[in-house]
């Protein structure tokens, strides 16, 4: 047993972190929220060049996947930098289309791997919304055993996070594939979206904690840094605790997905509820520890503060995940 990332995996994470730090996501987020996807698509192109989207695409279609451990490493970094766009959805589409096979797989998977195709999804049991459908090159919907290409993005519905733009695609559209393999692939794709969202939530929480620790070290009251007060320190310690115990569940789920273990779905659900709750707890800690200025749009922190709760609930609410864990 060696339940640790290897040097190459760690270096992959570090290089994504460095690239995204240099790119500076807050300006990309502002543009994205205003409906300008240009800077976001440029960033997605660079992530694709780094191999991120190929991780979810089978080798037969020009990808490298599936590599769940590397996928988790990447999504933690994308979450850390609040990268806008349908990340979990595009990665899950790799599983959906790879499983469905046929012409639709041939048509879309190479583009997903290379970053030229941004994809959103609506899957049975996960609500009617397609994230960032107006930025996507394709929106796929699965009902029962039918996979369709949505006829358009549909209507925009405001999200608590302005950079998560949710659309409700109209019913219908061309049937791209049908049969039991579609339904089965859709369930596997939903698990992959849940898994990716867990990693995004963990990264989001880690950044919220980092920013808050930096803030409480420099903000002084009563002549000392507020981070020297025990009430503040203990809350931050508990926040770290939550994140540190979510991470092994995430990578444990990655190992189970890689090994196609029958318990992988429950493991993904356990990781999702734990990372989602830990990320949201980090947001609450960050807001409280920043005080009034945290409750504004003045700081870039607002992008992370508003994202943590939607990530907690997307692709598996805490309650749904807990039920899945007990069902086994």
């Amino acid at each position: 047993m060696r339940f640790l990332l290897d040097d190459e995996q760690r270096e992959f994470g570090r290089s994504l972190d460095a690239m995204l730090t240099a790119a500076g996501t807050p300006s990309v987020l502002r543009a994205w929220a205003a409906g300008d996807h240009g800077p976001g698509r440029v960033l997605w192109g660079r992530l694709a060049d780094a191999g991120v989207f190929a991780l979810a695409v089978p080798e037969a279609y020009g990808g490298l996947g599936p590599l769940p451990v590397e996928l988790a490493v990447a999504c933690v970094e994308l979450g850390r930098h609040a990268v806008p766009g349908p990340v979990a959805e595009t990665l899950a589409a790799g599983v959906l289309l790879g499983g469905a096979g046929g012409a639709v797989a041939e048509e879309w998977l190479p583009g997903i791997a290379s970053g030229t195709a941004v994809v959103s999804l609506v899957l049975d049991g996960h609500g009617p919304y397609a994230l960032d459908a107006d930025a996507a090159d394709a929106v796929f919907t699965v009902t029962g055993d039918e996979l369709r290409l949505a006829p358009g993005p549909g209507e925009l519905s405001a999200s608590a996070d302005p950079a998560r733009r949710r659309f409700r695609p109209p019913a219908g559209g061309e049937v791209m594939a049908a049969g039991p393999r579609v339904g089965e692939s859709a369930r596997a794709a939903a698990d992959r979206a849940t898994f990716a969202t867990a990693a995004l939530a963990l990264g989001c929480g880690e950044e919220l904690l980092r920013a808050t620790v930096a803030y409480v070290k420099q903000r002084t009251q009563f002549g000392v840094p507020v981070g020297s007060f025990q009430a503040v320190k203990h809350r931050l310690a508990d926040t770290l605790l939550g994140l540190e115990f979510a991470r092994p569940l995430l990578y444990g789920a990655a190992v189970e997905l890689a090994g196609r273990s029958p318990g992988a779905g429950a493991a993904v659900a356990a990781a999702k509820v734990t990372a989602g709750e830990a990320g949201y707890a980090a947001a609450r800690t960050a807001l409280q520890s920043h005080g009034a200025v945290g409750y504004t749009q003045e700081l870039d922190l607002a992008w992370w503060l508003r994202r943590a709760r939607p990530l907690r609930d997307a692709w598996g609410t805490p309650s749904a995940c807990r039920a899945r864990v007990l069902a086994g």
Binding site: M1, R2, F3, L249, S319, V325, L326
Partner: peptide
């Protein structure tokens, strides 16, 4: 369902602790 969620949290917490320990033991072994 409130009690069900707490039972699930106990199951999840045991697994989290097992995996956290596996990671610590791996680091220690290294």
């Amino acid at each position: 369902t409130a009690l069900r969620d707490r039972v699930a949290d106990a199951v999840i917490g045991a697994r989290a602790y097992q995996l956290f320990t596996a990671a610590s033991a791996s680091r220690f072994a290294a």
